[in-house]
Design a binder for these strands. Structure first.
Lengths: 198, 198
DNA sequence: GACGTACTAGACAGATCGGTCTATAGGAGT
DNA sequence: ACTCCTATAGACCGATCTGTCTAGTACGTC
């Protein structure tokens, strides 16, 4: 068991350094030299393991995706009713916001820095698909008249909250989003299950 | 009239080039050389006029702020009732989304690329303050029970919509946001003018 | 014609970038 | 003992970055 206890592998140390530096300062700003220095590895180790900076960025974002989805999923098991589970997404978001290292959605910032066809954009697309699917499923379970439509609306609040938490340095954005989500949910339950009223 | 008709000044050409390239590809990705080449000016002209790239970024964002606020303000004069004016913000947003060059909120992307104390962050803060103030004023005029609270909620939808329009390439995000905003507005009007119910 | 202003063209400096390469060292499996 | 694998340190390459500097040009005003 020398892997995790005594000394993590080079790959793990590099990913940890990337997770910290890329997230805090941006994937464009942080250079390879900073990463290997912070991880305490040789440059060759990084390129033997990941091949390029772009692939390292992809691995960094994929690990974040895994962390966030696991964390949110686990947090939702605390709640019993469908309504509580749906609104619980914003509670889980609020917990992230209060962490001192929180610096916004990693996929949004990385995507803003990267070129159009880059790995960052692909990883962001995948993450957004997961969020959308989560909200859609929760909206269905809650009995919303139009689950897709409610999921889209909740996704707007979710994105807006993470953006406000970063740019306005306002961790209470998740509370505002949660309250707004409750109003939207109630309205979606009031609507008849199959009709389109604008 | 040789200024605007025949040949714009170097400053105007530089700003136009910055507005196009910075917005499309990012302030970090686009270098000074690309700007001066696209503007057709000498490098010395850029540095004599703006002093540094950071100041050029600030000027670029300030010009965008002026453009957007002027455009939104003018669009809102079309509507008569307070309710229409409030929801009209999302109509104006939808018009921006349909433009082929739309690439998300310039302040969000620029802020994601720039360092913490940079001009971009300052310009973004200023812009966000304007948006917040606009929503607050419209919420007051519409007679919302808690205008600040409603403004915060609408701001989440507004940010979420621009983010979705860019990342999901979905111009209809403004329509979703507008529908959600209508629900939130109605609820804010139903609430008694001075009480706090969670 | 002289002069100041605004501009252009482009070399240049100093730093940093992503990425490759050489050379070396230690540990595990045969 | 020998080899393979993984790791190390660090020189090195070509490209690119922001910013400076020199030199020369067109124009409008006195």
């Amino acid at each position: 068991m020398p892997r995790t206890a005594v000394k993590p592998s080079a790959r793990e140390r590099i990913l940890a350094a990337a997770n910290e530096l890329f997230y805090r300062e941006g994937v464009q700003t942080v250079g390879i030299d900073r990463i290997i220095e912070h991880a305490g590895v040789a440059k060759a180790s990084l390129y033997n393991t990941f091949g390029s900076k772009d692939e390292l960025v992809r691995a960094y974002l994929e690990s974040r995706h895994a962390n966030v989805s696991e964390r949110v999923t686990r947090a939702l098991t605390r709640f019993r009713t469908p309504r509580e589970r749906l609104l619980g997404v914003f509670d889980a978001q609020g917990e992230l916001f209060t962490e001192p290292t929180y610096n916004g959605c990693a996929f949004v910032t990385a995507s803003a820095e990267a070129a159009l066809g880059s790995s960052a954009r692909q990883a962001a697309e995948k993450y957004r698909g997961w969020v959308r699917g989560l909200f859609t499923r929760l909206a269905e379970e809650a009995g919303a008249a139009d689950p897709d439509d409610l999921a889209r609306r909740l996704h707007l609040l979710y994105d807006g909250a993470s953006l406000s938490a970063r740019m306005d340095r306002d961790p209470s954005a998740s509370t505002t989003a949660r309250a707004a989500a409750a109003v939207l949910l109630d309205e979606a339950l009031r609507r008849p299950p199959s009709s389109g009223s604008t």
